[in-house]
């Protein structure tokens, strides 16, 4: 078998480590693992898992780009790039008409506007308030004793949207407990939470100017309830991704790895 020249993008986020292996512009392997406390080890583990998925070894990798908060401890990487640039490249790869990205990750939330080539034209970021983060939804899922993946489908079965005023993790948790104690249906509260988050992050998106097509990336993008609430609050249509939106940052990192390697040749 002829040797593959492969490229890796490793996105070490606060909740998940996402890794993508690419060759000749195609994704040939990927992995999503839970981020542990050893940042460097997370990257290695993610890389090994994705390589195994692609049927390759480390020797097949020509260039690695690390992104996400864990990129500062990434001795396996040839280059580090912020997740803002990587999400832009990743979303452009998945859906080339993307002009705006809503990225909801484990610990922050970003609005990114792109130019026609997938370069960042403007961005706004919320890393101060828990609204719109995976961690917030994880805490909420715990209150309802369901898994994070179940929140979205549950919210779609709601019969009404209950107002939830808090988007602070601590206060929203106590507000939710009170609503449950009052006998409200969990799905109506969950949809209320999704709507509260959408309204809160709406301001950030108007700052960068929402333009079609809108791509929703990050782990929270898999939540269908959140997606629906955002479409309603921002009065937009979010594109159907043809790849896992949680991988967008890692895909972008792999795209950058391939072009950096080609430039350097």
């Amino acid at each position: 078998m002829s040797k593959v020249t492969a490229f890796a993008g490793v996105d070490v986020g606060s909740l998940g480590t996402k890794t993508v292996i690419m060759a000749e512009g195609e994704i040939i392997g990927s992995a999503i693992i839970r981020t542990g406390i050893n940042t460097e080890e997370n990257g290695w583990n993610g890389l090994n898992a994705a390589l195994e998925n692609a049927g390759l070894t480390r020797d097949d990798l020509a260039y690695v780009v690390a992104t996400g908060y864990g990129r500062i401890s990434a001795p396996y990487a040839n280059k580090t790039v912020t997740e803002i640039t990587c999400h832009a490249k990743g979303a452009h790869y998945i859906h080339p008409q993307t002009k705006t990205i809503i990225d909801m990750g484990g610990q922050d939330c970003k609005a990114i506007r792109l130019d026609d080539d997938g370069n960042v034209a403007d961005f706004a970021m919320n890393d101060k308030c828990a609204a719109g983060t995976g961690r917030f939804l994880e805490v909420m899922a715990n209150v309802f004793k369901v898994s994070l993946d179940e929140l979205g489908p549950l919210s779609l079965s709601a019969t009404e949207v209950l107002p939830v005023s808090s988007t602070c993790t601590v206060f929203a948790e106590s507000e939710t407990v009170s609503l449950l104690a009052r006998g409200e249906k969990p799905e109506n509260i969950i949809v209320g939470i999704h709507h509260a988050i959408s309204k809160r992050v709406g301001g950030m998106f108007s700052r960068v100017g929402v333009q079609n097509d809108v791509f929703f990336s990050g782990g929270v993008a898999k939540n269908v309830g959140m997606r629906k609430a955002l479409e309603e609050a921002l009065q937009i249509k979010i594109v159907e991704p043809r790849k896992d939106p949680q991988l967008a940052g890692a895909i972008g990192a792999a795209v950058i790895a391939e072009s950096a390697w080609k430039r350097g040749r």
């Binding site: 908060y69 790039v81 640039t85 370069n119």
Partner: peptide, 14 residues
């Protein structure tokens, strides 16, 4: 904070 520097780095990349 890393968050602050992250924004600055993204701006430089942009």
């Amino acid at each position: 904070s890393e968050q602050l520097l992250n924004r600055v780095s993204a701006f430089v990349e942009m």
